[in-house]
Nucleic acid binder design. Structure first.
Lengths: 155, 155
DNA sequence: GTCGGTGCAAATGCTTTGCATTGAT
DNA sequence: ATCAATGCAAAGCATTTGCACCGAC
């Protein structure tokens, strides 16, 4: 955690955003003529702390537990902005609710879902990108990305 | 297409189910003490004809176009039964609606989504299972399956 | 007559949206 | 003052469920 380079608005003294992502987000907002608000800062900070994979309602309850008050609507609107900015990516792990992962500046992150515990972690299969590109070439299209979810059980 | 081995109830004369899947489904239903009804037969037959990947509402509209009348509720209930029977598997391609693929007796089927056209086809990456198993072993878990979705654009 | 199956309509739960209010420049 | 962001409550939409009716054995 590195202190924010420029001060956030007063109501949220404790939040400190990981610098690169914060900068990326601010730049994206500026391009759109939109503002870097306290709510948006809180949400970005929270999802950085919720490691690997998170859901919208986890952000809500994490913030509420810390005594902050943000509406669901703002969380969903901010999630959309963060996707546009390339900071997070939606991943569909189950049909109940959308999950998201931090994506900025990273390889596509593959997921390992433990069917026994429900735990979701990220894994790396470096060979996959090349395999994927080859198959796409065979089909006459260009790979833009992929999403791999591996389902596993204990031992 | 092979004629059904035992006659369906009168209202649906034209439907003929691919025999192996029909047999698997009937066996599964029998195990549960449930019945192989005309509606269930129509739904299974329809999803076999909707090749590769389908959604619940495609089954509904396909049946309606053919002049058959089935309720959404029955389609969703039957889809669940077919999943239990291992005949179809849910795949999450986008956040709007669940997609399904025929799964019985097949390798896990990987998907290629054309972002330009929305077209979804199945692909094979045979090397993937081994890679996946290796990573799971490293994490101390046993792979049960996986889902790969490759997003691509034209040329 | 007992069971389960179906259709309908209502309920559910995540996500989105309309609108009045608020806040920043 | 203007312009956008927020919160709330209502709307949307895919999916599920409760319930009354129907049909098969």
């Amino acid at each position: 955690m590195i202190p924010m380079t420029s001060p956030p608005p007063p109501p949220i003294p404790a939040f400190q955003i990981t610098q690169p992502l914060c900068a990326v987000f601010r730049r994206h907002l500026k391009e759109l003529g939109q503002k870097y608000t306290p709510e948006r800062a809180m949400i970005l900070d929270t999802l950085i702390e919720l490691d690997d994979v998170f859901q919208a309602d986890q952000i809500l309850s994490t913030l509420q537990d810390s005594g902050y008050r943000v509406s669901k609507a703002t969380i969903y609107r901010t999630i959309k902005l963060l996707q546009d900015a390339g900071i997070i990516q939606q991943v569909l792990v189950d049909a109940e609710q959308a999950h998201y992962v931090l994506a900025y500046g990273r390889q596509p992150r593959d997921l390992l879902v433990n069917a026994d515990t429900g735990e979701i972690t990220t894994i790396e299969i470096p060979e996959l990108a090349a395999l994927r590109d080859k198959v796409c070439a065979q089909h006459g299209v260009k790979a833009q990305g992929h999403r791999l979810i591996v389902y596993a059980t204990n031992s």
